[in-house]
Computed example of a mutant assay.
Amino acid sequence: MTTPRILGLDLSITATGYALPDGQTGTFKGPWKGDWRLVAIRTAVAGHADAIDLAVIEDLPTHAKAAGITGMVHGAVRTVLMEHGVPYALVTPATLKAYATGKGNADKTAMAIAALKRAGREFGDDNQCDAWWLRAAGLDWYGHAEVDMPKAQRDRLDKVDWPQLGAEVAA
């Protein structure tokens, strides 16, 4: 069985963090304004859709002010993933933070420190860090962990509705 090719996405209308299947991270920004940003983000994700087995996306916060705008980004990205037959998993912010740090209310600094401690990774911004942790969670769930995590933190991934992957990439 091969390692699943997982794309981690921390979606935002202004700065979408991503972690590519090879571990490279970045933040998608651009000069686009308004709804054209949706098209640009959708196009960027579409450019990777044929080369991934799964996208792991940070879910919308339940009561966030920006949930409406971020929801539009989610809709654009989920649509392109569905059009390309790419399954995706949604990880709530609290679950992601608990997986990475052991605390569901961890702040951005704690997430960055956990990545530095566990993997020796530093990122240009918190969007990249979250995307990297999303990818790491997906790899861990499917039996290809890149970092050693305590069992209690790994158990947090049980809260996610993980899709079944094809036999050639399953754990």
Rank of each mutant, 00 (worst) to 15 (best):
A67W: 04
K117R: 15
T62N: 01
H84R: 15
H63S: 11
F123N: 13
M72N: 05
R121C: 13
A64R: 00
I52G: 01
G47I: 02
K151D: 10
W32I: 00
A46S: 13
L139A: 12
G104S: 03
M111P: 00
E122P: 03
K151G: 02
Y88S: 14
D59W: 00
G47Y: 05
V86K: 09
F123K: 14
H74T: 04
H84M: 11
W132A: 12
L60I: 02
T70D: 08
Y88C: 12
P87D: 12
K159I: 02
K117M: 15
D107L: 02
M111T: 00
L54W: 01
Y88W: 14
K65F: 05
Y99G: 03
C129W: 06
V160L: 09
P87I: 08
H74P: 03
K97R: 14
D59P: 00
M82C: 11
A115L: 06
G120H: 14
T70L: 14
V39L: 13
E83Y: 10
A100I: 06
L165Y: 14
K108R: 04
W141K: 10
R154N: 01
M72W: 08
A76K: 12
I69T: 12
D125S: 12
K33R: 09
L81T: 09
G124Q: 14
D148Q: 15
G47T: 07
D126M: 04
T109V: 08
T70G: 05
W36R: 12
I69R: 07
V147K: 07
T95N: 10
W133E: 10
G143K: 05
A49S: 03
K65Q: 03
G166P: 15
V160S: 06
A131F: 10
V77P: 05
W36E: 11
P150D: 04
W162G: 13
A49V: 01
L60Y: 04
T109P: 00
L96H: 06
L139R: 10
R118W: 08
A145I: 05
T109H: 04
P61Q: 02
R154G: 04
C129K: 12
V45K: 02
R154W: 01
L81M: 11
P31S: 10
M111A: 00
N105K: 12
R78A: 09
A106E: 01
D126E: 11
D140F: 08
A119M: 10
A145D: 06
V73P: 04
T79P: 06
E146F: 07
G34S: 04
D155T: 05
G75K: 11
Y99H: 08
G68A: 14
F123R: 12
M149L: 10
V77N: 07
L38F: 03
W141A: 07
D148Y: 11
D140C: 13
D125E: 10
Y99D: 05
